Amino acid sequence: MYRYFNSSYKFGSIAGALSIIAFITLSFLYPDPTNLNLVFGYVITPVAIFLAIKFFKEYGNSGYLSFAEGMSVGFVAYMLESIISLGGIWLVLLIHPDLFEQIKLSKLDVLASSKDSIVSQVGGDSFDLTLESIKNMIPFDIALNDALWKIIPGLFFTIIISIILRKNPN
């Protein structure tokens, strides 16, 4: 079992650590680093999945890869990345509550500046519900959102990469 997930652990852990580093770095450059960190996640997640599956195929499985093996290796890679990212971002926001408040204020400002557009598209009740949810937001919510936006594309990329790299013995 270890040979199946050796590369997953490595690349998932590296991607998770890079995601935390990106969040911290972006927090120095922008008042709300969450959106750009999501974009970073869209770049690093498929790279980590590809490398994990490719390394498993080449170095752990003699050049062969079934779809199920690719899905398993990719799943571990993106789940580990998202869990490490969730824990790291949550910890950063707990240690620096001023950063959390800055992010919260930024999200409230964006919501207020686009109120007319949002109300016209989804209605006043949806706007009020969104406003209330942002006001009640806690640091874990930001970290969980980041993790979820690594899992959802991670599944998609794992399917595609597993199909592309699949090679069964003849």
Rank of each mutant, 00 (worst) to 15 (best):
L51N: 04
I151Y: 03
V119Q: 11
W90G: 12
D109H: 09
G87F: 11
M1C: 05
W90K: 06
L105H: 13
L80C: 06
K10H: 05
I138R: 14
S126K: 04
I134C: 10
N136Q: 12
R166G: 02
T130H: 04
H96L: 15
L111R: 12
F40C: 07
Y64R: 08
A68R: 15
E132K: 09
I44W: 13
Y4S: 03
I163N: 02
I103Y: 01
E132H: 07
S7H: 00
K10W: 13
A68D: 01
A112I: 09
I83M: 11
N61L: 01
P31I: 12
D116C: 05
A112Q: 13
A112C: 05
L29W: 12
I95L: 08
I151R: 02
G12W: 01
L129A: 09
I138Q: 13
L99C: 08
N170W: 10
I103C: 05
T25N: 03
F50T: 04
D146V: 03
L36D: 05
A143D: 03
L131P: 00
I44E: 02
G12N: 08
K10M: 12
S13G: 15
T130W: 02
S19L: 14
K104E: 10
F75W: 06
S27K: 10
F11A: 01
I142Q: 04
A17Y: 00
L80I: 07
P169H: 03
W90M: 13
N168E: 14
V47A: 08
Y59N: 06
I134Q: 07
Q121A: 15
K54F: 15
P31Y: 02
D146T: 06
K10V: 15
S8T: 02
L36A: 11
K135V: 09
I160T: 05
F140P: 01
F11E: 02
E132A: 12
I138M: 12
L155S: 07
F23G: 00
I24H: 09
M79V: 14
Y42H: 10
N145R: 12
D98R: 02
A52F: 03
A77S: 13
